Simulated assay, not measured.
Amino acid sequence: MVRSVRIVGAGLIGTSIGLALAAKNIAVEMIDVDSRNQALAQDLTGGVSIAEPELIILATPLRALSQVINEQYELNPNSTFMDVCSVKVEPLQKVQASKLPLKQFVGTHPMAGREVGGAESARADLFLSRSWIITPDAQSDSEAVAKVKWLIQLLGATCVELDAVSHDAAVARVSHLPQITATLLAGSLHGVAPEWLDLAGAGLRDTTRIAASDENLWKEIISSNSQEVKALLTNLHNELGAMIDAVDDEERIAVIMRKGRDGRNLIPGKHGGKAREYTYVPIVIDDKPGQLGAIFNECAAMSVNVEDLVIEHSPGQLNALITLALSADDAVKLSNHLSSIGWNVHPIRK
């Protein structure tokens, strides 16, 4: 168990960790080079001044890591250190070149975030049910690793252990390439007529959501993992070329689309394992306050679990279509119930 934590870096991740720890009655001190960020994070977390923190969390941008490591180690030579950088090979190299002994350091990366950053966007529940990767070095002390694992579990995350090289290869595929493709797609919207963008449905919004992310954060992440990212972008470039060549051939288009659908099915469900196949309940609702809340009240009353929700609504439209994703049994149960009490429920679909 850890009783005192210093977090260096009062951004989204650092402050979210601070909020979550404070909620567990762990003493937290927030530090940031920007006095305004530090003051806000300290106020949010109820932060205190800690003379000898048991654990120091390095939540700074990668470019500042070397300086912070040395400064904090000189002040706290007996502390355990962990980082939360989005890449893991380069931070390890910086620790190796620093005064901090490797036995006192554990590399980590919480697979959580938001498209908005800063202490003002922090959430104590950011890490609940999320994977949190640790990349301990062979020299990492077992007690240091145990402290870090304890903290991860305390914050409600699931600890996944990888080596640094495997981590960077993995996140390039599941995080960095999706960010780049979302950014490029959103960038293609410049110059599109506003009335055309009014037609956009959930598909465009879903696929471009993370394009709202901070470019200063991502320029550093992509550059730090450039070798892995470049190889993936080359493959994507080839796939785009194949699609360009196939646009006049329906059969070739179908092959590409099937490959994409099959690839998406490889993504695990929200509780891990194979993705569940849901049954969908479409409901047309009036565009007025309280409609969605009323439906969820009925879901609670019927003890059915909604796994996902999509809302389709066009500007000026007086109603909207919501589609609830549930298990097959729950879908039938909810559809029958809502229909019986007057909701405009359409036939369920797979």
Rank of each mutant, 00 (worst) to 15 (best):
S129N: 15
R130P: 02
S131L: 12
S131E: 08
S131H: 09
S131D: 08
W132R: 03
W132P: 02
I133V: 10
I133P: 02
I133C: 01
I134A: 00
T135I: 09
P136F: 04
D137P: 07
D137Y: 12
Q139M: 09
Q139A: 15
Q139F: 08
S140Y: 13
D141V: 04
D141P: 11
S142R: 15
A144R: 14
V145P: 09
V145C: 12
A146E: 02
A146I: 02
K147F: 04
V148D: 09
K149D: 00
K149L: 00
K149Y: 02
L151P: 13
I152P: 09
L154A: 11
L154V: 00
L154P: 02
L154R: 12
L155C: 08
G156I: 07
G156P: 04
A157N: 10
T158V: 05
T158I: 00
C159H: 03
C159S: 09
C159N: 08
C159L: 08
V160F: 01
V160L: 14
E161T: 14
E161V: 06
E161W: 05
L162T: 11
L162E: 04
D163P: 10
D163S: 01
V165C: 05
S166K: 10
S166E: 12
S166L: 07
S166Q: 13
H167W: 09
D168S: 04
D168K: 12
D168F: 01
D168G: 03
D168N: 04
A170T: 01
V174T: 03
V174L: 08
S175M: 07
L177V: 06
L177F: 00
P178L: 02
P178G: 14
P178V: 04
A182N: 15
A182Q: 11
T183F: 08
L184F: 02
L185E: 01
G187W: 05
G187E: 01
S188W: 07
H190Q: 11
V192H: 14
A193V: 01
P194V: 06
